[in-house]
Amino acid sequence: MSGRRLFAGPARRAAVAPLLWMLLFFLLPFGFVLKISLSHTVIAQPPYLPVFDLTAGVAAIKAAFAALSLENFRLLISDDLYVLSYLRSVTVALIATAILIAIGYPIAYGMSRLPRRWQPIAMMLVIVPFWTSFLIRIYAWINILQHDGLLNKVLLALHVVSAPVVWLSTDTAMYLGIVYSYLPFMILPLYATLAKMDSSLLEAAADLGSSRLQAFWLVTFPLSLPGIAAGALLCFIPIVGEFVIPDLLAGSDSPMIGQTLWLEFFTNRDWPVASAIATVLLVLLVAPLLVYDRLQRRQLEARR
């Protein structure tokens, strides 16, 4: 009833704006990518066929449509390289997200328990690294992790190890880089959820016989699940498509899908296969988003 009135007039017109944005900057480019993924590669400019030429007449366009094929997608399924890349990406993203939750939750929880006046400062400390370029921060990690880098020097000085350890070009280095880069995206939504939690709920839990630990697991944790979900999505999705961190910090034996895509696009100049990889990746990433959206909608409906 009142919901409909809310979206009347200017409000409804304003609601069109994000749709227009989606159409212009997402659906339209995605249409191009999808079209290229159905083409086949040639050595030409542009490096694929068929090319739609609206001036060539109806018959030519019909012929162009007929030339489209699912060949590239068949290749993605048949060649281990691609399947393994996808699997690797999803596995890395899952493990990294789990580590991020394990590290981010205590930090966010601690921040939310700080005295009010310290909280903005803690928030700044989380955000400040963003003021340095992402690429520079990853290169700094290379510096720290290399053979005669800071980490090895410290470990040797402390006699933890007797010879320099190989850090670079390992999964450890990659996870370190990913967790380091994405931690704020995990902490901020978690902190937002935890900070707005009503402290009288914990008092009520104590009043009803819960110890502090019980109160955490029975009240704080379940109420922070939306924050965990938001943080996990915010991290998982970009990590799946991550290119820079695995390329600079991980070994080259098992590439993530972003690296494979880069390889197809720039090294092999195979735009159609690269486009097919991007299309499948998008579909894979939309799936968890839809699940999340469903969960949220169910929560909203329950609230009514």
């Binding site: 009503d198 009288s200 008092e203 009520a204 104590a206 009043d207 016989g209």
Partner: peptide, 20 residues
């Protein structure tokens, strides 16, 4: 004696019901 061990219960002003 901590609150969770007292034979006393409280009804809170904002009710403090567990929303989940």
């Amino acid at each position: 004696v901590p609150p969770h061990q007292r034979p006393v219960n409280m009804m809170f002003q904002n009710y403090a019901l567990f929303p989940h």
